[in-house]
């Protein structure tokens, strides 16, 4: 393990050091036991063409362009929520985000999940939210603005955390080639069903109970109190 070092921790640590791709790193690899290939070392490869982007990718369902389209949709609508001041628009942007997520599920060969996403989330939860908006908002156009301080802090924390995570991510060699090709006769819904009734039976039952409790509780809490 290369984490142990004989040098004192403050020596030979240039702040520019970790930006140098040629420098060999062992940290995250040592943590997850993978081959040290730096993602930035790929930059020697030729710039992809549009045709290549539209060609199906063996690693996932659909072409890379599809991925980028979904990603753009998801991210843009998600950030649109942040910048939107209208709660109704927010919910619409949330719908778009949820649909983008469903697209990802499809590409990741989780068709069942994509369906559930659209039905339960977009069709159920989102509707629930819209109901909430309607019930609580006599004026749907009403805006509750945060102070600039709050906005700044929020953006700082959000963006800062994202930047840190991306930084970590970029420097973490990912198991990009590690997936197993799905057999042609593989039926995921069947596998899910089996799992629910075998390995995940207890969570499944618990989820059922939870839904019941939620139903009762929500009804109780949301009731209009007498007087």
């Amino acid at each position: 393990m290369a984490i142990s070092c004989t040098q004192p921790w403050w020596s030979a640590r240039s702040p520019i050091g970790f930006l140098d791709p040629s420098r060999e790193r062992h940290y995250s690899l040592a943590l997850i036991g993978l081959d040290p290939i730096h993602p930035l070392q790929h930059k020697a490869a030729p710039v992809p063409t549009l045709a290549q982007l539209m060609t199906a990718d063996p690693a996932q369902q659909g072409a890379p362009l599809l991925f980028y389209a979904c990603a753009t949709l998801t991210c843009l609508s998600a950030w649109a929520i942040v910048f939107s001041q209208n709660i109704v628009r927010m919910s619409v942007y949330l719908l778009l985000t949820l649909m983008g997520a469903a697209g990802f599920y499809l590409m990741l060969q989780a068709e069942f999940l994509a369906a559930v996403q659209l039905i339960v989330y977009a069709g159920g939860t989102l509707i629930l939210i819209v109901f909430g908006i309607m019930l609580t908002n006599k004026n749907p156009e009403m805006q509750l603005r945060a102070t600039p301080m709050e906005l700044g802090l929020g953006a700082l924390v959000g963006v800062g955390l994202a930047a840190l995570l991306i930084l970590a991510l970029v420097h973490t060699p990912t198991p990009g080639q590690g997936f197993t090709a799905v057999p042609a006769d593989y039926q995921q819904v069947r596998a899910i069903g089996r799992s629910l009734l075998s390995e995940n039976l207890v969570p499944f039952e618990l989820a059922a109970v939870l839904l019941l409790v939620v139903m009762v509780g929500a009804a109780y809490m949301a009731r209009r109190r007498a007087g």
């Binding site: 290369a2 984490i3 070092c5 040098q7 921790w9 030979a12 640590r13 702040p15 050091g17 970790f18 940290y27 995250s28 943590l31 709050e150 802090l153 929020g154 924390v157 959000g158 800062g160 955390l161 840190l164 995570l165 930084l167 970590a168 420097h171």
Partner: peptide
């Protein structure tokens, strides 16, 4: 919201520390 801010700020700091330690260590 303040609590949430603390939560995420702390998370950011922890991440910062972890990332720094991990990235900067030789």
């Amino acid at each position: 919201r303040a609590y949430v801010l603390f939560l995420f700020a702390s998370a950011t700091v922890v991440t910062l520390v972890v990332v720094t330690v991990v990235l900067v260590s030789p």
